[in-house]
Design a protein around this nucleic acid. Structure first.
Length: 830
RNA sequence: GCGGGCGUGCCGAAACUGGUAAACGGGCCGGCUUUAGGUGCCGGUGCUCGAGAGAGUUUGAGGGUUCGAGUCCCUCCGCCCGCACCA
């Protein structure tokens, strides 16, 4: 008998799928489009092509492909595309080091990814492939940017950036490690530069409320996004500095504690700091403090257990509720990025204000107290989160429950024009400018006469020019390409210069799933007919590391594009599955640790089917797991067993109808096959339990081995064996498609992927007998065979007859009999 | 600190609505096949006592509800992930 030779099998089927374009699906209106099937869009996050694929890629695409295959065989028209997130820093850093153009390194890597994905037999519609660094793609990234610009959703403003004083360059967040430059180790500084932003904050509320529109997202991802958006309800209250006649609005979630404000703090970056300190005699101290604060990194400022610091400004503001003048401070625990960059400090009811008050010996006045207990001892801030607290020391509001007082005080302020109800978000606008070469150029021109001018659509794409110097020098490497930078103003024809920053790569990946649906369109970014049909993505699969940024940006883009009138859905991804990370020896795989597994080697040694099945079998796919080489062997053994079984069955049995009434071993095996169908179906359907689905297929194969020698003798047995083996192949197909196709073809003469997903026959799942569990006082005492439909009294009789049961009840009184028909009997004795 | 997840054999893990704890895989032990094997097939394997039948015991710790708890409720401990001076 032939040995299981994965390479020959895999080559054969991959060639068939390639030649026949098996996984290609037409769009509505295209020839061959089948509108009788419901659509299904299965998508895995696109890879960043760097070097060659690693096991993480093997896992996402194995899991995703299993789902795609499963859905196809359940009657769906499945689109399952692939592409490359091909702009980005690693290729550029490589260019700085070696001088090789990032484009060349990237395309070389894309070639390798393609080759390996094909060698894995992933069922991709390759006609839809895109790469974000291709001008035919980024032309439309620019087009979307321009539509956003027209709507005010893309805007330019001055903003602080991370600056490396040694390299004279702006750094992306990812390039700042613990406040230091990734490349030279210098302490990073904050600088202010003109930057482009997307106004994602305008969508904060919709990004929150539209979680309701999602079908199935992991709860923790929704929670992470919710926390990231960080919506807080409260009030904006105006404190006035009478001496300088400046109003200072603050945001607070606790307007009920307004009477407890005993001082006022502004952030070191606050624009009024210098004016406030001027002429107070505190100027020098304030300037020294502000300089120090601005120089230190966010890391240092936010360090845990750090003492509160700050300096007095020598000014006061007036508390609008009681007219009290309270002293002003500048302190770095107040952040310019959140709220208004200034706070009212209520030390009795805020931990940070409390610590500051302690350090500076300021008044701590309690204004909220539990209803009965009076005032709390002042050794820590009373945070007042339990229900029922009432106001104290709060003038006419005394005695009012704190929850009511929030509204009452806000209303009181609003009537007098001193404040209003307000909502604040932690979410900031999306800074998309990167002073980098290998990214999508921002299609904007600056003209002395016309100002900021968008590049007209017909001039897109603004192509990335070539250069040989990729090193950043305080501005984008593009700035040095003067031929390209100097251009004509599209509006007035006068001299103008191009924007030299490129876009954050998250922009490229915020809409790729739409482009897949109409990837060759050169007139428009996509045809609405295609997107109306295919969108949203029904099942999105990828790593948790993208739980916040990528997923939120893509949601934002989808909403913005819907508002612009280019899409008809509000949410891009109806269901999301996040897969866990594979480790080895308990540690993240890395070249420096030398614990990596190379998928190409793995496929070379065991074949793609083994590699794919193993990553799905390791454990719950959302949880990640530790790579064990022996485990791979185990899966390979299982696939070999299935292979040999199928060879043997083909050789020793003839194809034929299975008789309707089976008995003995034949019946047992057929019942097991139906059990496996039900189990695999339920496990895939309910929460991606792929590992237990594979275990069920293993059980079926084990049962066939156990019974096969008794089954070869008669036609009914042979038919049962053929059925069970073909079923095992059919069920393992989503995971090991090549082997399954080969085995199924030799057994049934059909292509397994063209067969509908098998259905479990309820009648065959039922057995004529079952194992009756007999307990005494809840302890297992015997296991008996009982007839399937046996009535309760019959089961009780059987149980009482058991010798072991009798030993445990003799001489005692049976006070209760619990019977669960078809399952167990429990006798309670005293 | 806030939010989320998790704790079960030697290891990865399983257990649908409370009903045989440990399916499946690995590892280990043994048998058979083989000239030989690191191949294949079969069997065993939570722990303790026992020759055995069997008994006791076991799901991070403690308590509770129940005829019956890995599963439900309360208290506590430990680990992992995300966010973090967000007013």
């Amino acid at each position: 008998m032939a040995r299981y030779d994965p390479h020959a099998i895999e080559r054969r089927w991959q060639a068939i799928w390639e030649d026949e374009g098996t996984w290609q699906v037409p769009n509505p209106g295209d020839p061959g489009f089948d509108d009788s099937k419901p659509k299904d869009y299965v998508l895995e996050m696109l890879p960043y092509p760097s070097g060659e694929p690693h096991v993480g890629h093997l896992k996402v695409y194995s899991v995703g492909d299993a789902i795609a295959h499963y859905r196809r065989r359940n009657g769906f028209q499945v689109v399952h595309p692939m592409g490359y997130d091909a702009f980005g820093l690693p290729a550029e850093n490589n260019a700085i080091k070696t001088g090789e153009h990032p484009r060349d390194a990237t395309w070389r890597s894309i070639e390798e990814f393609r080759r390996q994905f094909r060698s894995w037999g992933i069922s991709i519609d390759w006609t839809r492939e895109v790469a974000t660094c291709d001008p035919a793609y980024y032309r439309w990234t620019q087009w979307i940017f321009l539509r956003m610009f027209e709507r005010g959703l893309a805007y330019r403003t001055e903003a602080p950036v991370q600056w490396c004083p040694n390299d004279q360059t702006v750094l992306a967040n990812e390039q700042v490690i613990d406040g230091h430059c990734e490349r030279c180790g210098a302490l990073v500084e904050a600088r202010s530069l003109e930057q482009w932003f997307f106004r994602i904050t305008e969508y904060a509320d919709r990004l929150l409320s539209d979680f309701d529109l999602l079908e199935s997202w992991p709860e923790h991802v929704v929670t992470m996004q919710r926390n990231w958006i960080g919506r807080s309800e409260g009030a904006e209250v105006t404190f006035r500095c009478e001496e300088l006649e400046i109003d200072f609005p603050v945001f607070t979630t606790r307007p009920d504690t307004l009477f407890g404000a005993t001082f006022f703090v502004v952030a070191p970056e606050h624009p009024e700091v210098e004016r406030l300190a001027a002429g107070t005699g505190h100027e020098d101290a304030v300037r020294a403090y502000v300089d120090e604060a601005i120089r230190s990194s966010a890391e240092e400022r936010g360090a845990e257990d750090r003492q509160k610091t700050g300096v007095p400004l020598g000014r006061t503001v007036t508390n609008p509720v009681n007219g009290e003048r309270i002293p002003m401070f500048v302190a770095d625990y107040v952040l310019m990025e959140y709220g208004t960059g200034a706070i009212m400090a209520v030390p009795a009811h805020d931990q940070r204000d409390f610590e500051f008050a302690r350090a500076f010996d300021l008044e701590i006045r309690q204004v909220v107290a539990p209803p009965d207990s009076g005032e709390a001892p002042i050794d820590e801030a009373f945070l007042g989160h339990t229900a029922g607290e009432v106001l104290v020391n709060s003038g006419s509001f005394d005695g009012m429950p704190a929850t009511d007082a929030k509204r009452a005080i806000t209303n009181w302020l609003a009537e007098r024009g001193l404040g209003k109800a307000a909502v604040n978000y932690r979410l900031r606008d999306w800074l998309l400018s990167r002073q980098r070469y290998w990214g999508c150029p921002i299609p904007i021109v600056y003209c002395d006469r016309c100002g900021i001018v968008p590049v007209p659509d017909e001039d897109l794409p603004v192509e990335l020019p070539d250069t040989d110097d990729y090193a950043p020098k305080g501005q984008s490497p593009l700035a040095a390409v003067t031929d390209w930078v100097n251009t004509e103003c599209p509006r007035c024809g006068g001299p103008a210069t191009r924007e030299t920053d490129t876009m954050d790569t998250f922009v490229d990946s915020s809409w790729y799933f739409i482009r897949y649906l109409d990837p060759r369109n050169s007139e428009r970014p996509w045809d609405r007919r295609a997107t109306d049909y295919w969108m949203p993505v029904d099942q999105y699969i990828g790593g948790v590391e993208h739980a916040i940024l990528h997923l939120m940006y893509a949601r934002f883009f989808t909403k913005a594009l819907a508002d612009i009138g280019e899409l008809s859905v509000q949410e891009p991804f109806a269901s999301l599955f996040t897969q866990g990370m594979i480790t080895r020896g308990g540690a993240k795989m890395s070249k420096s640790k030398g614990n990596t597994v190379n998928p190409a080697d793995l496929v070379e040694r065991h074949g793609a089917d083994t590699a794919r099945t193993y990553v799905c079998f390791m454990g719950p796919p959302d949880r990640g797991g530790d790579w064990v080489d022996e485990g791979v062997e185990g899966v390979h053994r299982f696939l070999s067993r299935l292979w040999r079984l199928s060879e043997e069955v083909v050789e020793r049995t003839a194809a034929g109808e299975m008789p309707g009434d089976l008995g003995g071993a034949a019946r047992e095996l057929v019942a097991k096959a139906h059990w496996a169908i039900a189990k695999v179906t339920r496990d895939i359907e309910q929460g991606f339990q792929l590992h237990t689905a594979i275990a069920a297929a293993m059980e079926l194969v084990n049962k066939a081995y156990e019974l096969k020698d008794a089954l070869y003798d008669d036609a009914a047995g042979a038919a049962a064996l053929r059925f069970a083996t073909a079923t095992a192949a059919s069920l393992i197909f989503p995971f090991a498609p090549h082997l399954a196709a080969e085995a199924y073809e030799s057994l049934e003469g059909e292509r397994v992927w063209e067969q509908p997903w098998p259905e479990a026959d309820e009648a065959l799942l039922e057995r004529d007998t079952f194992t009756l569990i007999v307990q005494v006082n809840g302890k297992l005492r015997d296991q008996l065979e009982a007839a399937a439909g046996a009535p309760e009294d019959e089961l009780l009789r059987l149980a009482r007859e058991s010798e072991n049961v009798r030993r445990h009840i003799d001489g005692r009184e049976v006070v209760k009999e619990v019977v669960v028909p078809g399952k167990l009997v429990n006798l309670v004795v005293r």
